[in-house]
Design a protein around this nucleic acid. Structure first.
Length: 344
DNA sequence: TAGGCCATCTGGTCCT
DNA sequence: AGGACCAGATGGCCTA
């Protein structure tokens, strides 16, 4: 059974139960006097003569109303109204579910994805916007971006919890790329096509200067919290070399699936042209890692993982799923980006 | 308990 | 006429 059909049925069922408790319906089925108030504005053209309601709108006390005469609400009309309303509600629910599905797909695309720590809708959209802008800026300039600038652009306008989350996914310490507070700086991205990344991160975070950022959204996957090697202060960068980091003698659990990870080199590219990739040891890496629930090297749910959204799975139809955990799409992207850097 | 986030209902508007 | 889209209202859940 497809999800939509199932949802439809569930929706109707829940609708029927909800309707019984709908405050607008007065909460009492069968109360004819109260039901007449609910579709108060409903104007029906055809007269239902078969079932006249005991509507007492002949009240002598009421002033004469101008305009089209309000039709009486018969039982049949009320019933039709209810059915229409139920159908509209079900459609609206489905529509919103579709919207949420699309948003869930977007969550898996942006450089910060965790099954347990979902980005809010608004933050997902903001991050996606920043991500698109940052990538397009890279393509436009054709130069390897500065890591700090890139991450700053990525986190621009995001709340601190989200910034922490992104930083955790990228294995960065938020303190290292968030500048000092600039209270008067407006929160906005420069227009598309601007010459360079914004120099400052403008989100005002109360915790920025106070010290370590607070844990975002309550609990968080340990692997998503920026790691700190014991006994070492935070460096400007804490790159996530080779996907596995040993901290305190324990193998660091990589993030669930940060699509974009910052490595010391072009990890995907080096498989193809290791020599060329070596030139970029200090450059920003566009290796796109879809860790998925399986951890390092795992495939993302979005590309056909168990329980994945079929609508997200449309991406897979295009044969984008590659080998080695890299999709055709991301290899194409890596190749393009790396080609740009190589040529520049 | 306040605030944030979310799902749902609802009525209005526009389009086919 | 009916469906899609939108925005406001409302209530529930969760966290600090």
């Amino acid at each position: 059974m497809t999800r939509s059909v199932q949802e439809e049925q569930e929706s109707v069922e829940s609708e029927q139960t909800q309707e019984l408790h709908s405050p607008i319906e007065g909460g009492e089925e069968g109360g004819e006097e109260e039901e007449e108030d609910s579709p108060h504005h409903l104007e029906e053209e055809e007269e239902e003569d078969d079932e006249e309601e005991e509507e007492d709108d002949d009240g002598e006390n009421k002033p004469k109303r101008r305009g089209p005469k309000k039709k009486k609400m018969t039982k049949a009309r009320i019933q039709r109204f209810k059915v229409r309303r139920m159908k509209a509600n079900a459609r609206e629910r489905n529509r919103m579910h579709g919207l949420n599905d699309a948003l869930e797909c977007l969550r898996k695309i942006v450089p910060c994805y965790s099954k347990t720590q979902k980005l809010s809708k608004i933050e997902t959209l903001r991050l996606a916007k920043n991500y698109i802008w940052a990538l397009s800026e890279v393509l436009r300039s054709g130069k390897a971006p500065d890591v700090m600038s890139f991450v700053q652009a990525l986190c621009k306008g995001l709340s601190q919890p989200t910034t922490n989350l992104v930083a955790g996914c990228l294995q960065l310490n938020p303190r290292t790329f968030l500048p000092e507070q600039t209270p008067d700086l407006p929160v906005h991205l420069p227009p598309a096509g601007a010459a360079s990344y914004p120099g400052h991160y403008s989100y005002q975070s109360p915790g920025l200067t106070a010290g370590l950022p607070s844990p975002p959204y309550g609990t968080m996957e340990p692997s998503h919290i920026f790691h700190q090697v014991k006994g070492q202060p935070y460096g400007p960068l804490e790159p996530f070399f080779d996907g596995v980091l040993v901290t305190d003698g324990q193998a660091f659990d990589p993030p669930l699936s940060p699509p974009l990870s910052i490595n010391g080199n072009f990890s995907s590219f080096k498989h193809e042209t290791a020599a060329a990739a070596a030139d970029y040891d200090k450059s920003f890496s566009f290796s796109v890692h879809y860790g998925g629930a399986g951890g390092a090297g795992g495939h993302p749910a979005i590309y056909g993982g168990g329980g994945s959204n079929p609508r997200c799975g449309e991406l897979q139809v295009d044969g984008m799923m590659g080998f080695d955990g890299h999709t055709h799409h991301e290899r194409m992207m890596n190749a393009q980006l790396n080609a740009i850097f190589h040529d520049s």
